[in-house]
């Protein structure tokens, strides 16, 4: 089966999952896209290196990156894109095979496929967690930068016009506000807010 055909199948399957999880209608196509890319990465790496766990790990990382990207452009929480996308990677087949092996009282096989299922679940969560925690770190850094920017803007104002000077408490409030704006910008990427922040800085 060609890669393109599998991509289409994965796309449609992921859209189905997205409907099962009741994602907002306007994000359906993007959820499908994230899932299809994730599954294609999994498929290609699995074919190349013949390791389900490594392939799942890398696919989860790619999926998390795409999900974070879409979360910003679409102003939605990233779960909307990631949860439907991980389902094709989830060890459903491995779980089923474990169950069949237990039914057939073939406990060696059950332990083998069962541990594979657990490893796949770990690989998915590991891949997601690495990308998401790096992103959380970057967000914190951006928030700190925004706070420093607020201080600088205030200092410039002080030089220009003594009457607009803020006392330390108000300055602290101003910093907190800027940080908060930065925080929500991450979750709901807003181009207008970005522009106004840039203009403010230029002044």
């Amino acid at each position: 089966m060609s890669v393109a055909l599998k991509f289409v199948y994965a796309y449609i399957a992921t859209i189905g999952f997205a409907v099962l999880f009741q994602v907002p209608k306007k994000t359906l196509l993007r959820s499908g896209f994230a899932g299809a890319i994730g599954w294609s990465v999994f498929n290609l790496i699995n074919q190349e290196f013949d390791s389900v766990v490594v392939a799942t790990f890398l696919a989860a990382m790619v999926l998390a990156m795409i999900g974070e990207r879409f979360a910003r452009t679409e102003k939605q929480p990233f779960t909307v894109f990631i949860i439907p996308g991980i389902v094709p990677l989830v060890p459903g087949v491995a779980l089923y095979n474990t169950m069949i092996a237990i039914l057939e009282e073939n406990y060696n096989l059950a332990a083998e496929v069962g541990s594979e299922a657990i490893l796949i679940a770990l690989a998915i969560s590991g891949g997601l967690t690495i990308v998401l925690s790096v992103n959380a770190y970057l967000r914190k850094k951006r928030m700190a930068l925004a706070g420093r920017r607020a201080v600088k803007i205030q200092e410039k104002r002080n030089k220009l016009d003594k009457s607009r000077e803020l006392d330390p408490e108000e300055l602290q409030k101003e910093i907190e506000k800027t940080k908060l704006e930065e925080y929500y910008k991450e979750q709901f990427f807003d181009d207008d807010a970005q522009d106004s922040a840039n203009k403010e800085e230029e002044k």
Binding site: I83, V87, G92, Y96, S133
Partner: peptide, 20 residues
């Protein structure tokens, strides 16, 4: 058929919460 039921999200979120 069981793909629509498997607790994939719960497993993955469970491990992720534990890691976090």
């Amino acid at each position: 058929e069981i793909m629509v039921m498997v607790p994939g999200v719960a497993i993955t979120n469970g491990v992720r919460d534990s890691i976090a």
